[in-house]
Structure formats: structure tokens, C-alpha cells
Design a protein around this nucleic acid. Structure first.
Lengths: 123, 123
DNA sequence: TAATTAAGCTTGCATTTTGCAAGTTTAATT
DNA sequence: AATTAAACTTGCAAAATGCAAGCTTAATTA
């Protein structure tokens, strides 16, 4: 959890799927990106208050990592950061859509949340 | 790593994206499914010999978990298991395609591997 | 303007997951 | 009958995660 200037995320192979999973293949990253894409969230505390209750150290770690790999950036002061997706980050939208579609089909998903997702992704 | 009969994977929320990540939101599951979908692999040893060099205990753990949640099944004898995707597992194809497309765009992907993926997903 | 709040971290520590190396079991092959 | 090998299993060290608490300083409020 110690943060060094550069913590290179190493690739396990050159496979595009493997490379993608090296970036966002964990339980939290895509949820943060979901929050940005579908729930209009952009601040640390907004992410922190998501239903899945991420812990502060993990949230911080992911925000740093996602920033490092170029999926998100932020503007504003240190005490009032506003995160946003980069172009690269926005390219994850089709992934989130596919994941959501799968989840909608195969899990007892929450209806109110579905409204959001379905509306936002124009299903 | 101990295996109990039922190791229920617990949901962090009812969000379809979160639920999906509870199933395959780790660094290995989607690679095993990639192996099945795009590389025609179906046996333990074939998965074991993938470029990313998964370790045996993790491979075993994932095969058990993916089977438990209904994404894969197997036929054949205990010593000659052949895994295959269930209908539910096949529904992950759009996810893999989206992930691959993202990876192709944003990582220095291996060209020979790309042939496979692109051919298999009809890009 | 001094005190309070709160946003964004940071730390410590216990638990869990991962990675690595080696060993085990038994069907299939020689 | 002996050997191979496929599919695990185990042990242990290292890393990631989760939880609770504390810290720092900009913004707000009194």
C-alpha cells in the first residue's frame, strides 16, 4: 500500500485481454469507473459512499493506480479533487455495458439501479 | 485455498456490474474463459500452459469456483476432464470482445495473438 | 478571525488471497 | 509391470485486502 512515484504495472503477456485485466482486473476498479460513467460521481467521498463500501485505503490506491495508467485524471485543488475519465477511460464504456448486460441477465439485479444503468447506456 | 462443499460467493451489492465482478473480477477467471472461447482449450494442462503461467493452486481454485457459479462445466473422467462453457459462460463472450477491443486499442498487443482473437470474434 | 467541519488521504494491523515449489494420486500409456 | 502424466494438493512466504483509527489542511460557520 506504500506509494512510490512509479509502480509499474507489469504485463503477464501481450494478450490484449490479459493486458486489460492487468489494468482493471480487480474487484474495485470497474466499480469506480461505473460510478463515473453511470452515476455522475467524481469525488473521493462520492466513491467512498457507494453501495459496495470500499475502504479508504483501497479507494485511494485505486484512484492513484487508475490515474497512473491513464484511465482517469483530476482537476481542482488537493482538497477538492474532481476525477474524470480520460479518453482511454471512456473507451471502457463498451466493457461496462457488456458487463452490465451480462449481470442483468444472470444476477438478481436491483431494479432501481437498473433504471440508471439502462437509461445511461441507452439500452 | 481450502475447499469446502459450498463457498458462497457473496455479493457486495445488487448492481449488475458489481455482481459480475464478484464472479469474474479477478486477474485469472477471464483468461481461462478466453482460453476456452478463443484458443480452443479445455483441459487443466492446456490452461496451465497459457502464456501468463497461472499456478496450479490458483488454476484449480478458479476451475472449481467457475464451475460452482455455473460459468463452466466438465465432462469426462476425473483424470481426463474436459471443461466447457455453459450457456451462462458463453454470455461472457461480448464482455471478452469488449475487453479485447479495449486492449487492442490501448496496449502494445502481440500481433500473432491478435490474429486469433480478431479471427475468432469476427472483427 | 477563531473554532469547527470535512475532504482526502495515511497508518497499523489482522485476515485473505496469491505465488511458488514441491509432493500426491491414479488413469493411461509403454 | 513399470512408467508417464494429468489433475490436483499441500506448505509456506509474499502481497493484497479489509477495518478502524488517525492525520492534514482547505473550506465553512459562529
Amino acid at each position: 500500500m506504500k506509494k512510490q512515484a512509479k509502480e509499474i504495472i507489469e504485463k503477464r503477456s501481450e494478450c490484449p485481454i490479459s493486458c486489460s485485466m492487468d489494468l482493471v482486473g480487480d474487484k474495485w476498479s470497474l466499480l469506480i469507473i461505473r460510478d463515473m460513467l453511470y452515476l455522475g460521481k467524481s469525488t473521493y467521498n462520492e466513491f467512498l459512499n457507494s453501495k459496495e463500501s470500499i475502504s479508504t485505503n483501497i479507494l485511494n490506491d485505486r484512484l492513484v493506480k487508475l490515474t497512473e495508467v491513464g484511465l482517469i485524471t483530476y482537476t481542482g485543488t488537493a482538497k477538492r479533487k474532481r476525477y474524470e475519465l480520460t479518453k482511454m477511460g471512456l473507451d471502457l464504456k463498451p466493457v461496462l455495458e457488456a458487463v452490465a448486460t451480462f449481470g442483468i441477465k444472470h444476477s438478481a439485479a436491483d431494479k432501481t439501479f437498473l433504471q440508471h444503468v439502462i437509461k445511461t447506456m441507452n439500452l
